[in-house]
Design a protein around this nucleic acid. Sequence first.
DNA 1: CGAGTTTGACCTGCGC
DNA 2: GCGCAGGTCAAACTCG
Length: 196
Amino acid sequence: MNNLGSPNPNFNNFSYFPDHNIDHHQHQSSEFELSDYLLFDDHHPGFDEDAYSSQSKASSDKIIMGGSSSGATSEKNNMRKMKMEVGQRFAFRTKSELEVMDDGFKWRKYGKKSVKNSPNPRNYYKCSTGGCQVKKRVERDREDSSYVITTYEGTHNHESPCVVYDYYNHHQQQMPQNGWTLQPNSSSSPPSSSSS
DNA sequence: CGAGTTTGACCTGCGC
DNA sequence: GCGCAGGTCAAACTCG
């Protein structure tokens, strides 16, 4: 993984661990750590999480890159492509016992698939905020099931609900600190408020 | 009762 | 053209 340190500027309200914290060979204390992250965007088609997580070539990348493909596509097919063309993709790998990271957004699970060559199923989530088309895929690393590979696709068109919480915290100081950065769902020790 | 999850079916693209 | 694999849909189900 060589493209570390390229946080996606379009990924709203998403914070990144600094490079020196990214070392998946030195996990010691925390039950969760960000180990790797990848940025996929229209200008770097070579970086595809499928290439990262498997040897198989995926079709979704082509779908994103190619706005209009064959032309002989059905309306439904076009709809699919439109849905896919929601923005950038960003994948990262974390060491965590929990699969679902609480990144501050509200996700709705819409599918689950067993993946070939992987004992672990892949889960599909959509942002449940109305009008937001961001999706994410969550699956365990096939080579080391203690790692979770999360792939985000698209850009949120709204603020993270936890930003509201942060705002509320600053002004009311009553709500429990709800760190919205990468953290396991049930974690009670979020990284200290990351918003400056 | 509404929101979220589960899960089997369906659709599409790709490789052979 | 066929089969496989990945991704999505949607009805049924669960939970608060």
